[in-house]
Design a protein around this nucleic acid. Structure first.
Lengths: 229, 229
DNA sequence: TAGATTGTTAATCGATTAACAATC
DNA sequence: TAGATTGTTAATCGATTAACAATC
């Protein structure tokens, strides 16, 4: 029997996709979503119900194709001649990013940067709820700083465990960052947002790490300044 | 006469490059340079004189090819079997990014984030010197905050002009960001580093803008957290 | 209907990675 | 010399952009 077509890969037809296959959205698009989100919130506040991709592109200094491609990942469709519904888009971005669900977090290191992050109310709309902060400084321990309780660093592990904290924000000095991260991982944290200017590594590959690096951003600017001279 | 080879484009030879032609370095590489820089500083402190690209790659969790490509833009060569000279590389990165020359800066908006940036000593090594800060709050004006003088926002334009300030750091609330930037541009600033969560636009296309957006970074993290669930 | 706008496929561009030659 | 490591060219991969069909 001449069986030319092995089952599962019929000639001329694409392989059937696994339903649970991770989509893998382009990171640059994900990074732009908060920019659209903030823009759309302002549009909503000023009473705009529908907005075209071209309009968004013009206001945010992006190309219209890019806006359409980016918004496509939210799976909210627009109407030709009308545009996208502002409210639907806002809701869809929230859901896409998981900002509609509260993520409990702790912050380690209440220096000036930690202080600024602790008190930034804007994080609420991203679903980020910083429940408590931790520090080694006795003058801070036991106090409320920017409305959040500050505990001794020694208490962090237990706190994270008991309160099922998902996110750890690291704003300690570079030399302490790794050990703080280790404690967080040990306590079962899911993700670390690291502001210390040093690479954190974790054994448990399920723990997500996001590095924030002001120096990288400034490097781009200073290189351009130098080129302009 | 059979002149097949018009001058300036000899067959088989590449076009001669303009000497002043802007190189156009890949931005991802420029963003990674400060990471190498910080790593190399630590290597230097621990007495390492030479280091191989493979070693750097292993420690920073990058591929060896990427390290070699990235370091190539500094034009510092390595020696086969030996590696790169740590001191030369540090110096070359400084020069490449312009961090060897002091850039005078002002900061507008001494809230918590502004306060944190104002006092971050690490900026020194990037050549960034924040000379003064500006705010509308009378309780701050006239004081030294984190060692820097704080003046009334009304005085910023003149200050920038007189002190030939190159960089303006914007840490005011979103709604004031554009007008603060306008003032800076009017006063002749060369570059703006914007931490307000809003897009700043400038008429003068020579003025460089670098947007810093914590929400973009957090979006990447929260999307991954959601995917992991 | 005509025209503006979305949605999608294909082309382009740029960064990363692979392969390997050059070098000490 | 042999082998580790750099340097460079080519292949691959992924994001952006262009072109255009689909839709209201």
């Amino acid at each position: 029997m001449n069986n030319e077509y092995p089952r599962g890969s019929l000639k001329g037809f694409p392989e059937p996709k696994e339903l649970s296959e991770p989509k893998g959205f382009p990171e640059p698009s994900v990074r732009r979503l908060p920019i659209y989100y903030h823009y759309l919130q302002q549009a909503k506040e000023s009473g705009t119900e529908f907005i075209s991709g071209n309009q968004i592109a013009a206001d945010l200094d992006l190309s219209p194709v890019q806006v359409r491609k980016d918004l496509e990942i939210t799976e909210v469709g627009g109407k030709p001649k009308v545009g996208y519904e502002v409210i639907s888009l806002l809701k869809a971005i929230e859901v896409f990013l998981g900002w509609n669900e509260i993520s409990p977090a702790v912050l380690a290191g209440v220096g000036h940067l930690g202080n600024a992050i602790l008190g930034y109310n804007g994080f609420k709309e991203y679903g980020l709820n910083i429940a408590a902060a931790f520090d080694d400084d006795f003058s801070k321990i036991g106090k409320l700083i920017r409305g959040k309780p500050v505990y001794s660093s020694d208490a962090m592990e237990q706190y994270v465990r008991e309160h099922k904290i998902e996110i750890g924000i690291v704003t300690v000095p570079a030399q302490s960052a790794q050990s703080v991260a280790d404690t967080m991982v040990k306590a079962g944290i899911k993700a670390i947002w690291n502001f210390a200017p040093v690479k954190i590594t974790v054994q448990n590959s399920k723990v997500l790490i996001q590095h924030e690096n002001l120096a990288s951003s400034f490097a781009v600017l200073s290189k351009k300044i130098k080129e302009n001279k």
